[in-house]
């Protein structure tokens, strides 16, 4: 962790909200990406991301400065997302009635990079397909896979974030990867 970040956190511990704003700016895109890929819906992901930062601010005293700040923050975001998924599972699952409509505000996701409409369409369909496959993963595989392939984190970092041994992280990634393979390719026998 760099010195600037250490200074910022010191200030936040004293209640400096401007310093906290800088931390939010640093990490908001990563936190949002984790939440979005976990829950599959931009609005819910935004709410969860906000909640993650508010929690981080309110519990900054619990942050151990010997560890990476991002590890601690991503752990809050991952746990909030998992809690959210569990709550959603136990409540009447209204969103299950209209599959494929979640996370559809793809205009906010797709970069405006001058693609032709056809290319955009293909990209959009791909995005939706991949997102719906991520969503089929059980949550413990999903979080490991998201941290690894969306955030590109090391197995050690993932183990710190999820508070499980590296060996368990590997098992979850291997199983998640195998499930994705089965569902995403014809070789796996198509839809599971």
């Amino acid at each position: 962790m760099d010195q600037k970040e250490k200074r910022l956190i010191k200030k936040v511990k004293k209640g400096d909200q401007q310093a906290f704003a800088e931390l939010v700016d640093r990490y908001k895109n990563s936190v949002f990406a984790i939440c979005f890929r976990m829950v599959g819906n931009t609005q819910e992901a935004e709410d969860l991301s906000q909640e993650a930062f508010i929690r981080a601010y309110n519990h900054i005293d619990q942050y151990d400065h010997e560890r990476k700040f991002s590890t601690w923050l991503f752990r809050i975001a991952t746990n909030l997302s998992i809690d959210f998924l569990r709550r959603r599972k136990t409540s009447v699952s209204l969103d299950a009635v209209v599959p494929g409509t979640e996370g559809l505000s793809l205009n906010t996701i797709l970069p405006d990079n001058g693609e032709l409409p056809d290319e955009q369409m293909v990209r959009r369909e791909n995005e939706e397909m991949v997102q719906s496959e991520i969503k089929k993963l059980p949550e413990k595989y999903r979080s490991a896979v998201v941290l690894k392939y969306i955030e590109d984190l090391s197995l050690k970092e993932i183990s710190d974030i999820m508070d499980i041994p590296v060996g368990t992280v590997k098992t979850r990634i291997h199983r998640g990867r195998e499930m994705l393979r089965k569902n995403m390719t014809a070789g796996g026998g198509g839809q599971a």
Binding site: Q50, V145, Y149, I150, L180, M184
Partner: peptide
Amino acid sequence: ELKYSTDLLCRLAHPQLPAGF
């Protein structure tokens, strides 16, 4: 197939947050 599936994940665009976040 394993590589193909994870490559698709890696290539997902990072979602954009609204400016006022």
